[in-house]
């Protein structure tokens, strides 16, 4: 089963540990990682990608791709916000990677969540609150319990979205996967 995942944590350090754990699981053959990165939403609501400290020149591209991914995990309304945000980003400069996309996703996600609460639909829903970090990835897994059990002790909440032709079509030209690291990397600090 090919899946997009986001595992949300309260701290950046936990998300980094989760990234390491994910690749250890890959090495053990528990699942296969196609690409992964750590992202953080700061106190101003901006989403930043923890790329390698040496990869500053690639920051904008990575931000655009992950913005689309977060939008996908945030649901149909979030997808629209993510892609719109990503488009705005490509016009913007490298500084503040994912800022607009992040803000758009955050606001939309919170609003939709509130609406769902009102209609009393209890459903898993991805949202990255201010100050939270997430490990995002595209993986293949045969047993979802393996990842769930590994992330629970680290304090993470796992969100999944099936990787299908329909979901990928939502990305349009900004198909994100090429911007996630296809190997374990030490994420840059903030």
């Amino acid at each position: 089963m090919n899946t997009y995942i986001a595992v949300v944590f309260h701290s950046d350090a936990e998300a980094r540990l989760a990234l390491r754990k994910l690749w250890v699981m890959d090495e053990a053959g528990d699942l296969t990682v196609h690409g992964a990165a750590v992202v953080r939403r700061d106190d101003q609501g901006h989403i930043r990608v923890a790329d390698r400290s040496s990869d500053l020149g690639m920051s904008t591209a990575i931000g655009v791709g992950v913005g689309a991914l977060l939008g996908l995990l945030a649901g149909p309304v979030g997808v629209a916000a993510g892609i719109a945000g990503a488009a705005s980003l490509s016009v913007g400069a490298a500084a503040g990677v994912g800022a607009m996309a992040g803000a758009a996703i955050g606001i939309t996600a919170d609003a939709v969540k509130e609406d769902r609460r009102e209609t009393a639909i209890d459903e898993a829903f991805f949202t990255l609150k201010h100050g939270q970090s997430a490990m995002v990835a595209e993986i293949s897994e045969d047993y979802t319990a393996l990842l769930d059990d590994a992330m629970q002790p680290l304090g993470g909440t796992v969100y999944r979205c099936l990787n299908t032709a329909a979901t990928n079509a939502a990305f349009g030209d900004s198909y994100y996967s090429r911007y996630l690291y296809p190997y374990d990397y030490p994420p840059m600090g903030y």
């Binding site: 296969t32 196609h34 293949s140 090429r178």
Partner: peptide, 24 residues
Amino acid sequence: LEGAHEAALGLSQAVAAARSKLAH
């Protein structure tokens, strides 16, 4: 880099397929 990325992705899909076959 584009080529290397596509290679890494194609190979990880192949690894995933092999692992899945074994798991089943």
